[in-house]
């Protein structure tokens, strides 16, 4: 598909609604997970499976196709935001990449600024480590860009990395390596960070969220290179992004 607006990207993600099937002896386990996933684009079903001591969860896509499974205990551990947020897991420590594979493109709602910042940091860190590729970041207001300016100056000076920031307001300050695109409309409504990865390493990732209530965000993150590519193409085609 071709994305025709940042809100259009949500439609693409909503179509990918996933199903979490909880196999356990006791329905209470499924009820708890249903509560946890109530704010995300995931349907939770329960299948009584009494033959095994420990239960497991199965992720299926919208068509019912099997995507992956893991034990409930392990699932709880990696999902618990109090211990380790999903985006902060080091792939070497767990099989986080595979988890991302089947949890990516799930919508979240009611993320607060702290959670949004943590998810944003993960993407910025990837770009920093890669030291090449293109990083795009939307700032709803110039004040937000001012607050992050030092960090973004460092990112834009890092290796071959090229950084473009978008802001809703006019920006007239000269910057050395950081490209700034001023645009009205959706830029003021969305918080987004998109990294196109690098040629050799598949590091593409994106976070797109809309502030639907003050301080509360609805959106998704994705590690799907094709989807990230569509977001990049949309931003470059729609806005006057300077050549790197």
């Amino acid at each position: 598909m071709t994305i025709e607006g940042l809100d259009d990207a949500f439609v693409a993600v909503e179509r990918e609604r996933k199903r979490l099937v909880v196999h356990a002896a006791d329905v209470a386990v499924a009820d708890e997970l249903e509560r946890q996933f109530a704010t995300r684009n995931v349907a939770v079903d329960y299948r009584r499976t009494a033959a095994f001591d420990e239960g497991f969860v199965v992720i299926r896509d919208a068509d019912g196709r099997f995507r992956g499974t893991l034990g409930i205990d392990q699932f709880d551990t990696v999902l618990s935001p109090e211990t380790t947020p999903l985006w902060a897991l080091e792939p070497s420590e767990t099989e986080a990449d595979e988890l991302f594979d089947f949890l990516e493109n799930t919508l979240f709602s009611s993320y607060d600024r702290r959670q949004m910042l943590a998810a944003t940091r993960e993407i910025e860190d990837r770009a920093w480590r890669a030291a090449e590729g293109h990083l795009y970041a939307g700032f709803q207001r110039t004040a937000a860009l001012e607050a992050q300016r030092e960090a973004y100056d460092r990112l834009s000076a890092r290796g071959e990395l090229s950084v473009t920031v978008f802001t809703d307001d006019d920006w007239d300050k000269a910057l050395e390596e950081l490209s700034v695109v001023s645009a009205s409309g959706e830029i003021g409504q969305f918080w987004f960070v998109v990294f196109d990865g690098t040629v050799e390493e598949n590091q593409a990732c994106a976070l797109v969220a809309e502030e639907r209530e003050p301080g509360l965000y609805y959106g998704f993150w994705t590690y799907d290179p094709a989807f990230v590519g569509e977001l990049v193409a949309y931003l470059e085609d729609t806005y006057d992004v300077p050549e790197a």
């Binding site: 196999h23 420990e54 099997f66």
Partner: peptide, 25 residues
């Protein structure tokens, strides 16, 4: 067969403490 393959994948995931993917299913 889908249910049985799911049970095999799920039980294997529990016993090994890892994610069992589509290929193993």
């Amino acid at each position: 067969v889908d249910e049985l393959a799911t049970a095999i994948a799920g039980k294997t995931a529990v016993e090994t403490g890892r994610i069992v993917t589509e290929a193993e299913y």
